[in-house]
Design a protein around this nucleic acid. Structure first.
Lengths: 217, 217
DNA sequence: AATTGTATTCTTGTATACAATTATAGGCGT
DNA sequence: ACGCCTATAATTGTATACAAGAATACAATT
């Protein structure tokens, strides 16, 4: 089955299944600006597709709140303001707390093994001081928790938020010089999985995200 | 502008803009069952539409997590389990708390007037003992808070959750005999708007939703 | 000069046609 | 009878064609 994380389908045409993702990224990165009109034909020409897949992508972007479509008039980019992003961080925190609680209650053995493996990679990269690899494994660690929560909507929403924050933030090296600190925060989270203590996990995740926000400033 | 609450567009054809809503409702109400295959042609025949609008609706349902589509194979109903709904309630609570906090900080005068008006209707219907009208105004009251949070995504998500829980729950008369209690809970929420105390609002909303969950059992 | 009415053009909404992939059924051999 | 292969049918993915509504330009009138 060729299904990828975010429910993105990869089909024959090189861009068809990814058009939604492509436009999403363009909006989040600011390549498409607030208020800009998105003509279907224009997108067709740019990506070499017909209107059918373009319209499907538009409907999805509309549902995600990234564009607004007015009947018989067209689609307009909405984008995210600074406050939207700040809000998104809080929304993410609220859901991460739920996710870790449920994950600790519901995680399977295989999933916990993968989480342990991810944590061990974090230890390794911290030792080696590789901040960029740390960023990647950090994302994986959190995604494993989302999956272990065994709630499709929560998993999907948190993955989307992660993408939004990743695409917009300039967190290229925001954890340089904080690697040990970050590792310690994840250790507390992982420990909560070992001791099967949802409340401890919730506290650890909330603290981790608060610190992450402070670091990104 | 003919745009409705949930971003639903109403166009020429009687069902086109509502097909997504229609299928959403069918899945939530259990008319379309878990695992059932959704053939595009079958939906076209049933609703008298061509495949283009049907596919657009499918893409949206997929994004909402109500169906799963496998490339070149088709769409399958996912539906919501008992645990999913219980989880949804918790997710809603987490977001309602954020919404009320932000709403208290950001509400405009006009919005607060509308909220007050809604609350006064609640007092009126409580006095008259009209439980069904109370259910409606209750929804409106919460929707006004969502809107006053001035965060599109939060507003949209909470509206969707409200729909999900409303469509699935059999809360026809779950607040019969609890009208005074429900009114009191909303008074505490509204008071927090008057005194502009976000934390008090958060506490009041959390308590209200916990009680609502207890009542629905 | 400003405004209103109209015709034209452009864009979206929907339907249909074609291509590609997958499922199915029947025949063949073992 | 069972499994495998091939041919056919069915379904999805994409492109194009047609219909309906909105925006624009322009002329006529005040």
């Amino acid at each position: 089955m060729s299904r990828v994380a975010n429910g993105i389908r990869s089909t024959g045409h090189p861009l068809s299944g990814n058009l939604f993702t492509e436009l999403q990224s363009d909006i989040l990165r600011g390549r498409l600006k607030q208020g800009e009109k998105l003509s279907e034909q224009q997108i067709c020409d740019r990506y070499g597709l017909s209107r059918t897949p373009v319209r499907e992508a538009f409907r999805q972007l509309e549902l995600e709140g990234l564009i607004e479509t007015i009947p018989n008039r067209g689609a307009y980019v909405l984008g995210l303001s600074e406050r939207d992003l700040s809000d998104l961080f809080e929304m993410r925190k609220a859901y991460e707390v739920l996710a870790v609680k449920w994950a600790i209650e519901r995680i399977t053995e295989e999933e916990q093994e993968k989480l342990e493996e991810a944590y061990e990679f974090m230890e390794f990269y911290t030792m080696k001081g590789e901040a960029d690899k740390m960023l990647n494994i950090n994302m994986q660690f959190h995604n494993l928790i989302y999956k272990a929560s065994h709630n499709r909507m929560l998993e999907h929403t948190l993955s989307t938020y992660q993408l939004y924050l990743k695409e917009t933030e300039s967190n290229s090296a925001y954890l340089d010089g904080h690697l040990e600190q970050v590792l310690m925060e994840h250790k507390k989270i992982f420990d909560a999985f070992v001791s099967k203590d949802p409340e401890a996990g919730a506290v650890a995740v909330a603290a981790h995200l608060d610190n992450a926000k402070a670091r990104s400033k």
